[in-house]
Amino acid sequence: MGLLSKKDLKLITDPLADNNPITIQVLGICSALAITAELKASIVMSIAVLFVMGLGNLTISLMRNIIPPKIRIIVQLIVVATLVIIVDLVLKAFAYELSKTLSVFVGLIITNCIIMGRFEAFALANGPFRSFIDGIGNALGYAVILIIVGFFRELLGSGTLLGFKVLGDPIEKTGVYAFGYENNGFMLLAPMALITVGIIIWVQRSRNTSLIEDN
């Protein structure tokens, strides 16, 4: 990694674990929960957020000295909205089925607090390159949680991963279904996403006790 200094590298690795945008900073929860019933949707959403966050942070950081502070929220929203429209059109053109599954949640990337949060906290005060790295890092941290949740919900809920029947066929009773295993349809319903994230938080904070809140 000759390109990145140690400090820059930290910007990428920190959000992956100890400063994770979802479990620690509490940003960007809405979309994380709503679209994670399938692994594929989670991955596509992560890529979309990666694109918007990287470029958005870069743009805001380049403009940070000319934005009047009073109207900065509107400016930020317009920048994100433009990027999201690009993502939406690309999805509609190349993955129409998937864009139907994601429905309004692509549009809701605009108000994904993770993006506004990083703009406010980082891009407005740092140079373009570091902001870009920070955007990528946080989007990766977001992606990690999305993919973990998507993995478990799809595996336990429908017995598939990315649509492949990894546990055997439930109708013909092959694989684990031969031993009487049943899919847990409950995992596909919305509330289980919340509980899965709750469990991830539990595991993470048991491993790193300095993160425990005192409430």
Partner: peptide, 12 residues
């Protein structure tokens, strides 16, 4: 349980 305090329990 301590690791669940705050955010974790709210999620659940």
């Amino acid at each position: 349980p301590a690791p669940l305090r705050g955010l974790g329990i709210t999620f659940i």
